[in-house]
Write a protein that binds this DNA or RNA. Structure first.
Length: 283
DNA sequence: ACCAGCTCCTGCTTGC
DNA sequence: TGCAAGCAGGAGCTGG
């Protein structure tokens, strides 16, 4: 489901009910998701206070007062649902757990935070906070696309020598961390770059344009509360609405929205995944 | 080092 | 209406 803007949206919704609060009880309803949960996860969460909730790429990071950090990756279909006294009357609050509710954090103030993940591609792990960057899933991540480390020179260096299509290269989290299929398609359209172009054969000016396009599309999506496809919603139950701003994603056959362009959006498959682009104005 | 293909799992949509 | 195929926002692993 979630790419960087959706994860950031979840983080913003979750921070008020997690940061500074204590986990009174952790209910772990299966042995793991994509990977087994760490040993004694429930015990290591119980009684711990969450000091801060941050994000790295598509990972949520809850720093605990035990010196460990809870890492959460939502995979394709993961959701974090907040239920408590103040949300109990809302339509999305559910008294009975669904069969895909895998972990429930019962907060001391009565709020429940439920990790629901139908496809079970999600990840939860615990890792020492002072060595967090050594975690296997964080260690090789590229720069944050909205941070200072992401600029034309850095992206050009990361793409240099690569003959793979730029579309698939941008999905590689070592190049830039946090993009997924939707926002790569949208950023390439904004930059006017053809998704099949060899990653290492993009001129410096166009790499700079791509950096600007990536930043802009992510910022706009965050401002919109992310994109709602199928069933994504923010932790507070609000629906994102950036999907209405898609230029190309899931729009095969529709006219290219670029002013003056008479192209028609095409769908191709790259690396087994759908790519949407305008064959006329992306070169 | 790079890269294409496969894999995990469930559920929704599409087409016959 | 039923059923099977196809598709889905991720990313690690394998083998070339």
């Amino acid at each position: 489901m979630p790419e960087l803007p959706e994860v950031e949206t979840v983080r913003r919704g979750l921070a008020p009910v997690l940061a500074g609060r204590m986990i009174a009880r952790a209910e772990v309803r299966r042995a793991g998701l994509r990977f087994p949960f760490p040993p004694d996860m429930a015990a290591r969460l119980t009684g711990r206070r969450v000091e801060a909730l941050s994000r790295r790429a598509k990972f949520l990071l809850a720093a605990l007062d035990s010196g460990e950090t809870l890492l959460i990756h939502l995979g394709m279909s993961g959701r974090l649902l907040i239920e408590g006294a103040e949300t109990a009357t809302l339509h999305h609050a559910r008294a009975v757990p669904s069969r895909h509710d895998h972990v429930v954090l019962h907060m001391q103030d009565g709020t429940r935070i439920t990790f629901n993940d139908a496809r079970r591609f999600g990840v939860m792990d615990l890792w020492p906070t002072d060595r967090l960057q050594e975690h296997p899933m964080l260690a090789r991540l590229g720069p944050e696309p909205l941070g200072n480390g992401f600029h034309a020179k850095a992206l050009a260096a990361a793409l240099a020598g690569r003959r793979a299509p730029v579309k698939t290269a941008l999905l590689d989290q070592r190049v830039v961390a946090g993009l997924g299929n939707i926002y790569v398609c949208e950023a390439l359209w904004r930059a006017g770059i053809h998704p099949k172009r060899a990653a290492g054969r993009i001129g410096n000016q166009r790499v700079a344009a791509l950096v600007r396009a990536i930043r802009a599309v992510l910022e706009e999506a965050i401002d919109s509360g992310g994109s709602t496809l199928r069933d994504f919603r923010a932790a507070d139950g609000e629906l994102g609405y950036f999907q209405h701003a898609f230029a190309v994603y899931d729009r095969a056959g529709r006219p290219c929205p670029r002013a003056g362009c008479k192209g028609k959006i095409a769908r191709i498959v790259q690396g087994g995944r759908s790519t949407f682009y305008c064959p006329r104005c992306q070169r």
